[in-house]
Design a protein around this nucleic acid. Structure first.
Lengths: 333, 333
DNA sequence: TTGTAGGCGTTATCAC
DNA sequence: GTGATAACGCCTACAA
């Protein structure tokens, strides 16, 4: 293996000089510099990051904790995180927790073992007290899902407003019996979107039917099942707001199986605007979050904190957008 | 920060002893051991992996090179890789190359910089000669996509047989004008599946129409466009085999837009059996690969090679399965 | 401008 | 069974 020692010897200089050339910081004579650079190239020398990392006491690795990369919701967020990381010469370790506490702890240990410099939490099942403890010692940023109790930076959208707008839209196209298929209320986004849903109904003078609110997992399966449950009722809803496109895609399958039509029998609004949303049959009305930007901002905040532990704690609210498609529109024949 | 030194001092032993306890390899007196363990717990000591990695000259990090995690095709493969990695105390860095050479090179540099111990290549756009050069110095395994020229371990399925079976199925349901929407022929899987397609047609005495074979990108967009191209023809096909479900989903959208029915007007067979396939309208007939197992095997081979550079070069062919669904079946009303 | 040398935290080879 | 101590490869005062 070519080490900095060999380069130094070969170039007839000290390791310090080679190191200076490598880190282009210090002043080094142009002539010496070119000799060293030539030698580096000739010996195909690449610095051993294991040595550098130990010396600098950093890993230049960022953790992104998420339940599963299979959820298309995370795709663009991850891309945003990775882009900013790369711009700042960090690598990103995607940590699939499968929402299991045990896995989360394994990854959080990477921080303690110095294998990662910071962590972006995208969906914590973790005990809030554990997170609080860790966040005192290591840089942590919350993305999308967050806890106000923790005084940590986060990036999110106004989920209350988003839920409110989604349901207002359904009301505006004449729907009166609007159901909500939500994920677990342990999530702050779930609680906020539900609040928005309730506010919109109240404002429109539509009564609230508790049976029209269903909480469950956030996957296809659950979307299908929850929809079945709603459609089995005598007084079935004429519209449904689902807190994710994945849920909505599951629901669309159920609706199709029951030979009902969208949006005539049931209008459907999803959330996230994942790639598939526009390709569904019918194309899905949904709330678009600026996922790429959310990812970028999250990573920016984290790196700020890694570089300067005492930087101001930013809390960023991004804009969202309601995208109206076939699932709430009369089809043009 | 708690270091091994502090633990040693606190426990009244030498760092060597603490290290022995940590690595549970060497014999150490039960009494000493328990004192050290107690001290470790009390001081909440966690070994600094930066130090260990430098000393051991390993990073315990595995690279998985793939174009994009957004392609659901990779989801279960990645899970398989990660599971085996974790079982062997490795971490996996998912490297999205976006099929750009430049990015691939960045990640391959991580090997040279000792930040990774090995690499699983899932879709190389990289120059074969570059890969050959790297593979002499570092452990590399090819997964799904591979090059026979490189004498490297790989895990894949019999893509020729798979293409052959898919098209035979279409023939068996009475289709005669069968098109192929393929990805780029630079991929070995693309060439093999095409060969299978041709063989099935020839065997059935169906002529080959060059215009029925379309090569393009492997994404929704391309599936949509290629299908448009086929349906614009006067003698349009009555069936199409697409080399990925993602392409097929795009194609289904086009077919729907044109108000044609599946499978009556056009039967559709995809490839990969991604999660969405069964949830499409109509549900998609497809070839299922044992993706999770492919991932596991790939990682197993890689770790074998990391541990022992001179281990036998295994080449593993896994089984596939044709899954018949609505897109090639008369709908039961 | 350049070189010397200490140390980052760990493991592993010697002695004892 | 245990303890010194020398690496691993790099960076960075401090000297020169």
């Amino acid at each position: 293996m070519t080490t900095i020692q060999k380069v130094a010897k070969e170039a007839g200089v000290s390791v310090a000089t080679v190191s200076r050339v490598l880190n282009k910081s210090d002043r080094v004579a142009p002539k010496t510099k070119s000799i060293v650079e030539e030698t580096i190239k000739r010996l195909k020398y690449q610095p051993n990051m294991l040595g550098r990392n130990l010396r600098r006491s950093e890993s230049r690795m960022i953790l992104a904790l998420l339940p599963s990369i299979s959820n298309p919701f995370y795709t663009m967020i991850i891309k945003g995180i990775e882009d900013v990381a790369r711009e700042n010469e960090y690598n990103v370790l995607l940590c699939q927790t499968n929402s299991e506490l045990e896995r989360e702890l394994v990854y959080i240990n990477l921080l303690k073992q110095r294998l990662a410099d910071g962590l972006i939490s995208l969906d914590p099942t973790i005990n809030i007290n554990v997170l609080r403890g860790v966040s005192q010692d290591y840089p942590i940023v919350q993305s999308c899902e967050y806890s106000e109790e923790l005084n940590l930076p986060y990036v999110t959208i106004d989920n209350f407003q988003a839920g409110y707008q989604a349901v207002k839209h359904l009301i505006s196209i004449g729907k009166k019996k609007i159901a909500l298929i939500n994920s677990d209320n342990k999530f702050i986004y779930a609680r906020l979107r539900q609040k928005g849903y309730l506010k919109a109904l109240e404002e429109a003078g539509l009564g609230i039917n508790e049976d029209f609110i269903i909480n469950g997992e956030n996957d296809f399966e659950s979307g299908q099942k929850s929809m079945q449950q709603l459609l089995a009722r005598k007084d079935r809803p004429d519209a449904v707001f689902l807190v994710s496109d994945v849920l909505a895609i599951g629901a669309l399958k159920t609706i199709r199986d029951m030979k009902l039509s969208v949006p005539e029998d049931i209008a459907v609004v999803g959330f996230d605007n994942i790639e598939f949303a526009i390709r569904m049959n019918p194309a899905l009305t949904t709330i678009a979050q600026p996922m790429y930007e959310i990812g970028r901002e999250s990573c920016r905040l984290l790196i700020n904190r890694i570089v300067n532990k005492d930087v101001e704690i930013e809390k960023i609210i991004m804009d969202f957008e309601l995208i109206i498609r076939e699932s709430t529109m009369k089809q043009v024949e």
